[in-house]
């Protein structure tokens, strides 16, 4: 649903000569499924931060369907991210003391956008990711289950883009594969653009378009005619 267009983006870190990220041009069409890879320090995380509006680039435009994040103030970017980006992080960032359902609903509730249908959707999403006990306390869950909760949380507000930062890095291979499949299926079903950062070869192999980063720039951008 959301297409991304980067132009002349540059991010610099204090004390470093070369830019942390420098991308002249990058287009990701709506509903595309893209994997970003590269060695650590190559700028993957910086790119994720830029395209989710967590980090404002020193120069350039980060446009989602024409909305330039680089031009928005921090609260507006926060609001935009909440409504349009489904974020899945390596460390889950689930909150102990709350149930699976409460965790799924927490960001929406804090943003005061959790109506009745959102609450119903949370339970449906948990079922969709394979969890049948929405009221199970989060701290009693396995890591694989936790990441499923995080995926359900990312999808709650029907985001236009799902961004997953190393979603399988802290999971065993079986759970990792399951999460990868889940993300791709859910993105396809909802029509959301899917951008995954990973160095997991099996996950990378599943994606039709693979963008490799090195030293803060795009070193390779290949699209296979057929996804694995």
């Amino acid at each position: 649903m959301l297409s991304l267009s980067l132009a002349g983006v540059e991010v610099r870190f204090p004390g470093l000569e070369t830019p942390g990220l420098r991308i002249e041009r990058l287009e990701i069409p709506a509903a595309a499924q893209v994997v970003l890879s590269g060695p650590s320090g190559s700028g993957k995380s910086t790119l994720v931060n830029v395209i989710t509006g967590l980090l404002r680039p020193a120069a350039g435009a980060v446009s989602w369907n024409g909305t330039d994040l680089a031009a928005l103030s921090e609260p507006v970017r926060d609001r935009w991210r909440g409504a349009n980006v489904g974020l899945v992080m390596q460390d889950f960032h689930l909150f102990p003391g709350l149930s699976a359902r409460e965790n799924v609903l927490l960001p929406a509730r804090l943003a005061r956008v959790a109506g009745k249908e959102t609450v119903a959707r949370a339970v449906a999403l948990l079922e969709r990711v394979g969890l049948s006990r929405p009221d199970q306390p989060i701290e009693t869950m396995s890591r694989g289950e936790m990441q499923r909760v995080a995926v359900a949380r990312a999808l709650l507000r029907a985001p236009g883009v799902i961004v997953a930062d190393e979603p399988t890095a802290s999971l065993d291979p079986v759970n990792g594969a399951a999460i990868g499949t889940l993300l791709r299926d859910l993105a396809r079903q909802s029509g959301a653009t899917l951008i995954v950062v990973s160095h997991d070869p099996r996950l990378i192999a599943a994606f039709p378009r693979r963008i490799a980063l090195a030293d803060g720039t795009v070193s390779a951008d290949e699209t296979l005619s057929e996804a694995g």
Binding site: T52, P75, D78, H93, L106, L110, A111
Partner: peptide, 20 residues
């Protein structure tokens, strides 16, 4: 810091975190 940042990243407005 990280937990609080995560809430913000996930879309919780800063006034909500402030309120918490």
């Amino acid at each position: 810091r990280r937990q609080i940042g995560a809430l913000r990243a996930l879309g919780a407005p800063r006034w909500a975190i402030f309120g918490i």
